[in-house]
């Protein structure tokens, strides 16, 4: 076990250090969440006139949703890093060493979660400037960060599994686009669930993006339901285990193809 942890830690260090060398990547990482928040906050400002929003401002309603959307998108695209390692033969080099095999996959997944959490923190700070207060206080912030971490990991697992199966950037891009918007609009990220068509609200219950949005909202909106938060975090944690399992299986498939 300690070997897996150590190797995962070193591999995460490699990935984060390499990303930190890309100034443009860092700039986008910081700016993008702000754009979501400012743009969507303005665009859908009048949505709060619909029933189901309670007494909060739209930007308060939106903040946890944007956090989760961001973690979801980031996770979905995170497999591109695996494709790059495949193309550059870095993965093969590690496979001929004593490297823990699981660490090679796990590090990528945890890295997706960590980046999602960092972005969540940025969004919360920007939202704070826009007058958004997490009603649950510090535990609320922690809940939002944990949710974004789990959403990033869960979809990171899916993305890395797909990367190891497709091994092609073009296919990855198509797949990420295929799931991105439908899952976003099948959730209450932008709109209250009571305002959604009945069948969509029904389907949303099975949508992991929605699980994240529901959990994160308990930390920001008034009247937190901690039971619901815990249940949805549990679902996300379970999903993460499943998707990491999928990515590990895909890794076996890739290794057998060598």
């Amino acid at each position: 076990m300690p070997r897996i942890v150590a190797h995962t830690w070193w591999m995460i260090g490699r990935q984060l250090r390499n990303l930190a060398r890309e100034p443009i990547w860092i700039a986008l990482l910081l700016i993008q969440p702000m754009i979501w928040l400012l743009l969507y906050g303005q665009l859908f400002r009048n949505v709060v006139k619909l029933p189901g929003f309670g007494a909060v401002s739209y930007v308060t309603f939106l903040t946890p949703g944007i956090v989760v959307m961001n973690a979801f998108f980031g996770g979905t695209w995170s497999g591109m890093a695996m494709i790059q390692d495949l193309d550059r033969h870095v993965l093969e080099r590690f496979l001929a060493t004593r490297s823990s095999r699981i660490a090679l996959v796990l590090s990528q997944v945890v890295r997706s979660g960590l980046i999602a959490a960092v972005q969540a923190l940025i969004i919360l700070v920007v939202a704070l400037a826009l007058g958004v207060r997490a009603h649950a206080g510090a535990p609320g912030w922690l809940l939002v960060l944990l949710t974004s971490f789990l959403v990033g990991c869960a979809f990171g697992g899916v993305s890395h599994g797909m990367a190891l199966i497709f091994r092609k950037e073009a296919t990855m891009i198509a797949a990420a686009n295929f799931v991105g918007l439908p899952l976003l609009f099948l959730s209450s990220t932008l709109i209250a669930r009571t305002s959604m068509p009945h069948w969509m609200a029904g389907l949303a219950r099975f949508n992991p993006v929605e699980w994240g949005v529901v959990a994160a909202r308990q930390g920001v909106l008034p009247g937190a339901d901690w039971g619901s938060a815990a249940a949805h975090l549990g679902l996300l944690a379970g999903l993460t285990v499943v998707t990491v399992g999928f990515a590990t299986w895909a890794f076996q498939v890739y290794r057998r193809s060598l």
Binding site: R14, R17, N18, R88, H89, E92, R93
Partner: peptide, 8 residues
């Protein structure tokens, strides 16, 4: 094929 990590 070189397995060097070019960003490191």
């Amino acid at each position: 094929e070189s397995g060097v990590d070019r960003d490191a």
